[in-house]
Simulated assay, not measured.
Amino acid sequence: MKNNKKIALFGGSFDPVHTDHFNMAKACHDKLGFEEVWIIPTFLNPFKSSTKTSNEERLNLLNLIFENEDYIKIDQFEMNNQRVTTTYETVSHFKKMYPYYDFSFVIGSDNLNRLEEWNNFDELINLVNFIVFERSNNYKKEVAQKYNLPIYYFENNYLSSTKIRELEDLKLLIPKVNDYINYHLLYLDIRMKPFMDEQRYQHCLNVGEMAAKLAELNNIDPQKAKVAGTLHDITKRWSEEKQIAYLTKYEKALLGEPKPVWHSYTGAFHLKYDWLINDEEIINAVYNHTVGCEEMTTLDMIVFCADKISVERDYEDVQYYREECFKDLKTGFIKLLINQYDVAIKTHGIEAIGDKLLKTYNFYVKGDN
């Protein structure tokens, strides 16, 4: 018996999936009458040299964004092929598997610019109907006219995965997707490497790993500690002008602190307002990682210590401080704080060490509480 179920096939890298992908899929169901939308993440897009995240992470994000949409099916046909799979192969596969289904293939209008370059295009254009959503007004309208392809409209935020990887337009991203990306530290090489040298980048990774180890011993979420540790120096290599601009915008009084610690505060602001990290414990741990504060949380102490005992550190007695931190976090923290205070006094004099280090030292060492 025939079943002419209308299915929209929606392929792409989804690296990462974003709000416009979601809205296009929803428009297929709600406005165009498709009973189901099958999301088909690529193993590798034929026009791209690589994906930026693993198959597992892209699938996790797809499952997350579509978790409440019962008309969605996420199909791993192309991923399971472990090679570049052309749209012609994919459509042919599904038409063979489900001969009585009525398939259409979803693309954004930007795909029209190279549509005729797709493998087996002459066969493909006769094999399946295309559903074209207008992503922008800049596309080859003559291609749509030539093949009589209707252009559909949807709730368009003009997002792109490239921009999201580069921290642009995150406010238009569905929050749970952004939270997942941040919590799992996706796209770090894109988001961090352009703004620091390789040595600093490696230090950040090492601090993240050290923070996770300390967290496991102190009943703190290791991944949360890893996030805070990895991102602690995110603005370390910013220019002085940019540091000043952020401090002026978000907490001007911090300009009175020594310049070498400014990155603690600008880093926290950058993560909160640009990365849209909404976990205040992570933000505070970055904020407090250089000179601390009164009444440090366990996570604050973890990141403070991890920064100073990370695996590449080789200053005198660093192994002693590592052992102390792993024996008892608070004891190790206080010993590191005393060492930092003594070095700062010796190097810069008490007048130049800043209010925050002095308050932290007085609170934990002198007991001014």
Rank of each mutant, 00 (worst) to 15 (best):
N148L: 12
N148Q: 14
L149F: 05
Y153Q: 12
F154M: 12
E155L: 09
E155W: 01
N156K: 05
N157K: 15
L159D: 08
S160A: 15
S160Y: 07
S161K: 07
T162D: 12
T162N: 13
K163E: 15
K163Y: 08
R165W: 03
E168T: 06
E168F: 13
D169N: 14
L170V: 12
L170C: 03
L172F: 13
I174Y: 10
I174F: 05
P175H: 00
K176G: 08
V177Q: 00
D179Q: 11
D179W: 09
N182V: 01
Y183D: 03
H184T: 12
H184R: 13
L186E: 14
L186Y: 00
L186A: 02
Y187W: 04
Y187E: 04
L188W: 09
D189M: 00
I190M: 10
R191W: 02
R191F: 04
R191V: 01
M192H: 05
M192Q: 08
M192W: 02
K193P: 01
K193Q: 10
P194I: 01
F195D: 08
Q199L: 14
Q199C: 13
Q199S: 14
Q199R: 13
R200D: 05
R200S: 15
Y201G: 05
Q202F: 07
Q202N: 15
C204L: 03
C204H: 01
L205I: 12
N206M: 11
V207S: 00
V207W: 04
V207I: 15
G208A: 03
G208K: 01
E209N: 12
A211V: 01
A212N: 14
A212L: 13
L214D: 08
A215T: 06
E216R: 14
L217I: 11
L217S: 00
N218I: 10
N218Y: 11
D221S: 02
P222H: 00
P222T: 02
K224I: 09
A225D: 03
K226I: 03
K226Q: 13
V227F: 06
G229D: 02
G229P: 01
T230L: 10
T230R: 01
L231F: 05
L231S: 06
H232W: 08
I234E: 01
T235I: 04
K236N: 13
K236L: 11
K236T: 02
K236F: 14
R237P: 04
S239C: 04
E240I: 09
Q243P: 14
Q243T: 10
Q243R: 08
I244Q: 15
A245S: 15
T248V: 06
T248L: 12
T248K: 15
T248Q: 11
K249A: 14
Y250P: 07
Y250F: 15
Y250R: 09
E251I: 04
A253F: 12
A253T: 14
L254V: 11
L255Y: 07
G256N: 15
E257I: 06
K259E: 13
K259T: 09
P260W: 03
P260G: 00
P260M: 03
P260F: 05
V261S: 14
V261E: 01
H263A: 03
H263T: 06
H263P: 09
H263W: 05
S264N: 13
S264G: 07
